[in-house]
């Protein structure tokens, strides 16, 4: 096959598109965080996120979050096709601002927890989880 100028251009475009993919995923997580925080900067604070360092099976990864004084905590998985995972809104009868659940992770990535505090500020923390078998079923 002879490489024409047209082919070369097409290849170039394809390569650019592939290179853009991770950027797009990155933008998705930024967007969904901004949707929750309303664009406000999330600082650090008294928020803890507990997740395994290595998860063999991405289909069920146990995570727990706690942020005393929070009204809501949202979990994000930066490398999933949809970054949002869950939002916990705590009511007046809550015993503590903490919760545990099991989540799906598509691959090795950062899990991010952002808490909205009573005064409207946001604090966040993140943890990297290594995933051996992804949980999105291809």
């Amino acid at each position: 096959m002879k490489l024409t100028r047209r082919d070369a251009l097409a290849w170039g475009l394809g390569a650019t598109a592939v290179a853009m993919l991770p950027m797009r995923a990155f933008a998705a997580i930024e967007d969904s965080i901004a949707e929750f925080t309303g664009g406000a900067e999330a600082g650090s604070g008294d928020i803890s996120l507990d997740a395994p360092e290595i998860a063999e099976n991405g289909n069920t990864v146990p995570v727990s979050v706690a942020a005393p004084g929070a009204v809501a905590i949202r979990l994000f998985a930066a490398g999933n096709p949809t970054p949002g995972v869950a939002t916990f809104n705590f009511g007046p009868a809550a015993g503590s601002q903490s919760a545990s659940t099991r989540i799906r992770l598509a691959g090795t990535q950062d899990v991010i927890a952002i808490a909205q505090m009573e005064d409207g500020s946001f604090i966040q923390t993140a943890k990297t989880v290594k995933v051996t078998i992804g949980g999105c079923g291809g």
Binding site: S64, G84, V85, F88, A94, G95, A99, S100, T101
Partner: peptide, 28 residues
């Protein structure tokens, strides 16, 4: 989850929650 009409926790779930959703939390 409500206790006597008072909200304990209200969770919004996304597709990234595992099969057979499990939650653990505390109530006063």
């Amino acid at each position: 989850c409500e206790l006597n009409g008072n909200m304990v926790v209200d969770v919004t779930l996304e597709p990234a929650i595992s099969t057979n959703p499990y939650f653990e939390f505390e109530a006063k």
